[in-house]
Design a protein around this nucleic acid. Structure first.
Lengths: 210, 210
DNA sequence: AAAAAAATCAGGGAATCCCCTTAGAAAATA
DNA sequence: TATTTTCTAAGGGGATTCCCTGATTTTTTT
């Protein structure tokens, strides 16, 4: 049976480009092309495609929320996100939201077909360049200044702080004096460069100390 | 040319299992099997394999840090992480750290070969079950109770809190009374179910309100 | 064994946060 | 226009955090 592909992108050119890439492939049929989220929702309800190639930047709803909606209604639908180099930051969220593939718009025919095959088989497809970009991003973002080294006890206190406990409660949990807890907290603040407990948590999450 | 595969896992059984899966495949040769991180580092420096199948739970160094080291030294090495269902939480980090594939240990021969081919071509391979698990995890963890709706002003205050500002400073930034800031903060706490500002930030980051 | 690092505790005081309630004005929505 | 929501503000007080200094004991490293 033929695989039905739908494409959503607000740029006519991209729509055309992808369509022509897939035109001469016998096992694939394009079931529809859409320019925004509402068109997509409507179109897909009529002709349920197997795979949707979805742009992230849409005029009405963003691709992340749209794919959430779609996947809720059509659990079997496979969605491959089409992204520019600019909106890479979204991918991290998409990865958690059930999208099955991620392609840059500069993809070629072979890669596109590989991606489609891959997601249809149930696996997840991540384009190589994208992965590299993701890497580069996180390296400049969270790797500036290495992971601060907390002592074992400081780490215990950090965990307790993140559990929204007060100094008193932490002292009871760790069987130490509240004053000791305060000392640890001050040292953590200093090591992380935080101004207060809020900063401690923010930075700890950022640097993956939790 | 033959593809050289190395395997690192502290369980002999897994080592054997994977080796036997790949035994009868002509284009693949197993260049070494290792039981911990230091053996791996040593082994790989001698015979540089193309692909490393790497367990996450190792006795000496964890797989995440090891893969960081390895990829730094051998940028062309492709690493496929082998995981149990238990340590799925690590995958999110691995995804950012340059690992090229993620497989559960219950994989079969076909999938294993697909993964190897895939990562050799430069793409990233994510096993279907793993993706589902990842999804499930984030759904039960951060989706219980939808994204709380903060008002515009509450959001302003939230941002300011996350900037480690004090009530006084926030009031000056937003040109409102400190008492008003406190009111907003209390409302935010109540809406997010936080016990204090630390909780506000923790939950805000979790639910992507920042 | 000696040195360094980590963990413990404390006094004291200013600053800030947390929590309750109440309430008028402004803005958005029905 | 009427109703609801949001934004504004305040009083008052207890709880907690923040910040300084200084010090002893324990653990780890050299």
């Amino acid at each position: 049976m033929e695989t039905k592909i739908a494409i959503t992108d607000d740029h006519e050119m991209v729509l055309q480009g992808i369509a022509s890439m897939l035109e001469n492939t016998p096992e694939i049929a394009i079931s529809g092309t859409y320019k925004n989220a509402s068109e997509t929702l409507e179109g897909i309800s009529k002709v349920q495609p197997d795979v949707l190639l979805l742009d992230i930047n849409l005029p009405d709803i963003n691709g992340i929320d749209l794919s959430k909606q779609l996947l809720k209604k059509y659990p079997d639908l496979k969605i491959i996100a089409l992204t520019n180099f600019e909106d890479i930051s979204f991918i991290k969220r998409m990865l958690k939201n059930g999208v099955h593939g991620y392609l840059l718009k500069n993809t070629d025919k072979l890669e596109l077909l590989t991606a489609i095959t891959q997601v249809l088989s149930g696996e997840v497809f991540l384009q190589a360049d994208l992965h590299k970009k993701l890497l580069g991003q996180t390296k400049t973002a969270s790797d500036n200044g290495l992971k601060p080294k907390l002592t074992r006890r400081e780490h215990d206190v950090l965990i307790a702080i993140s559990e929204e406990l007060t100094t008193q409660e932490i002292s009871e949990k760790l069987f130490i004096s509240p004053k000791t807890v305060e000392t640890h907290r001050m040292n953590i603040m200093s090591k992380l460069g935080a101004k207060n407990s809020v900063g401690i948590i923010k930075i700890a999450i950022e640097k993956e100390l939790l």
